[in-house]
Design a protein around this nucleic acid. Structure first.
Lengths: 248, 248
DNA sequence: TCGAATTTGTGCGTATGTATC
DNA sequence: GGATACATACGCACAAATTCG
């Protein structure tokens, strides 16, 4: 066995104290000078250990104040199964109601030309016009989820639902809106991946840089092909995603 | 606007060169002495910048040799929809065959007492006996996925399928195995989250520390309740997970 | 086979700036 | 304003791994 670097030993030590509960959320961790004295190393080594745990999300450093065990938000569950869309109204608001939280959101829409990626997902031609809408979803006023959606203007131009969040069908979800103009959605494809949070997302979601988000690439498809696609960004700190499917 | 730290500027610079393709996979990155001279900073700052990109998975450091742009595995898709189990045989092998890859795995089983978490997921009592099986799944001999599965021994003890990977039903998947002893599985629940990779997982999967994995907490449930639950660990570098569900 | 040069990983000590209390 | 604590930066040192003549 090779001997471990000192900074990893210190980090392991602190990490164990946190997962064991000897250090609770909000507790202050010894300052780096104290750690350096405690473990008889230079302060630089203590800094290295602490910084590792900060990037791992265990600790939170507040300049001028100290380093604290990070408060982990409670993880809630978001249903993404087949019956999600069958409840009527906004799927997000229904999700929130099941948790006794108030689901709200803000959005802004612009028309754009389809990027190559979006064009491929919507099965349209590059530079075809699309309606791009950015959402910030909130639960009890706390931002919890981001979404960017694209709809081909070839389908919606001139209809009552062209602007997703205006008109008589605003806030009812994509399936209901599309049905209003005679487009029945048959399937939802959700492709999942995860990555580090981006700077602008971190700001919008009040998450620390370095935290991890899941990205759901969702595409709704009707008889004639895709009618909407969206990138949904969910911090893993706040939500886990649940898919329940029948087997046979 | 606050001025960015130098090490972040250097990291941004290198990252951009990589995503732009000016630095290709396998290319050698300037050594820290060269970087330090180039950017007129101390070597420690160059080290810090490079280490950031290593944890982000862009670079790979080989002591004594140099630092290289990491070969990114191509992201493949893994279907996790309703028909996954309906294809017969091993779901994993079927997934791999669709990609023209050879799906193999190794496993080892032990009997254990249920931890509180596992007991809750299987709806059994803490310390009830379970069969715990660890899997390493490979595609063309390259490890791509880990799984730990638990089955209540109360259901399988004394049957031909007690050992998941031995006997006449080995390698056929949970649904087929359970059916062999008269247990029909009705639903699959998959709860998804993501986190940083753990050290032992990184070693098994040949992934760098700091890379991100998705964790699928899957539970198969029959008429009488849960019959199997598993934690499936998938590096986001290698796979995205696809769920296709009918709407309405 | 051996040794020298290179490169990374880790470590020490110090200094400056800035945020918090 | 002063004390404290974190963030960043400089420069150097040594061990271990690798490369190459």
């Amino acid at each position: 066995m090779t001997t471990q670097p000192v900074y990893l030993r210190i980090a392991d030590d602190l990490r164990r104290q946190i997962v064991d509960g000897r250090l609770a959320a909000g507790d202050k961790v010894p300052s780096r000078h104290e750690l350096a004295r405690e473990y008889e190393v230079s302060d630089r080594v203590a800094v290295q250990a602490v910084r590792l745990l900060v990037t791992e999300g265990y600790l939170e450093a507040r300049p001028g104040s100290g380093t604290y065990v990070r408060q982990r938000p409670t993880v809630r569950r978001m249903m993404r199964s087949w019956y999600r869309e069958s409840r009527g109204g906004s799927p997000f608001r229904a999700d929130m109601e099941e948790q006794s939280r108030a689901g709200t959101w803000t959005s802004s829409s612009t028309t754009e030309k389809a990027t190559p990626t979006v064009a491929e997902r919507l099965n349209i031609t590059e530079d075809d016009a699309v309606m791009c809408t950015q959402y910030v979803f909130r639960a009890d006023d706390e931002p919890v989820m981001l979404s960017t959606s694209w709809e081909p203007l070839a389908l919606t131009r001139g209809t009552a639902i062209m602007m997703p969040e205006q008109g008589p069908h605003a806030g009812q979800g994509v399936v209901a809106r599309m049905r209003a103009i005679g487009l029945d959605i048959a399937t939802a494809e959700e492709v999942l991946t995860a990555r580090a949070i981006l700077a602008n997302e971190a700001e919008l979601l009040h998450e620390p840089l370095g935290s991890i988000v899941m990205v759901v690439r969702r595409t709704y498809t009707g008889e004639q092909g895709p009618v909407e696609t969206a990138d949904i960004v969910v911090p893993v700190d706040r939500y886990e995603l649940a898919y329940i499917t029948p087997v046979e």
